[in-house]
Amino acid sequence: MNDARSTGVGLTCAGLPAGALDDFLTAETIAEIAQSFWDAFLPDDAVLLPGSTLPATEEVRGRIDIGGSWSGSVELSCSLAAARRIAAAMFSLSSDALEVSDVHDAVGELVNVVGGNIKSILPAPTSLSVPTVGDEAGEWRFAATLEHEVLLDWRGEPVVVRVWRAAGPATS
């Protein structure tokens, strides 16, 4: 359900040449942005450590697309346990009172904030799609190039932020 879908953001390759993203966005900056979400919204439980391993299963995935001077996607995935803990904090509910839609909405806002802050670093003009959340990797990934993969660890639960460059106008 609710899998990543085309969001209407024009995925063209105008603007930044391939490889130029690093001038603006480093893995360290991505980790800082993710940390700022935890600092602000989960202040009692806010430490993200560098992660060392990919999760065996990435159970919840959020994605948001950026278009404009640079085109691509920011993808954030985590374990279901991490997603539920984020949702519980944002909705102020106990974990067992959460619906699937609550968990998806919370991860959607997480990827929206992380993606929005990444967008704001890129040279204007840029545009941002509405986030989508699902539990499987979409086919769009086959055509995109992985620019950054940042592994984080939140109290033993994996959180992964990936930045993908769109392949070209045909990708969506």
Partner: peptide
């Protein structure tokens, strides 16, 4: 806000 989570927060 279109996010229920953000509205809740």
């Amino acid at each position: 806000d279109d996010s229920r989570a953000m509205r809740s927060l």
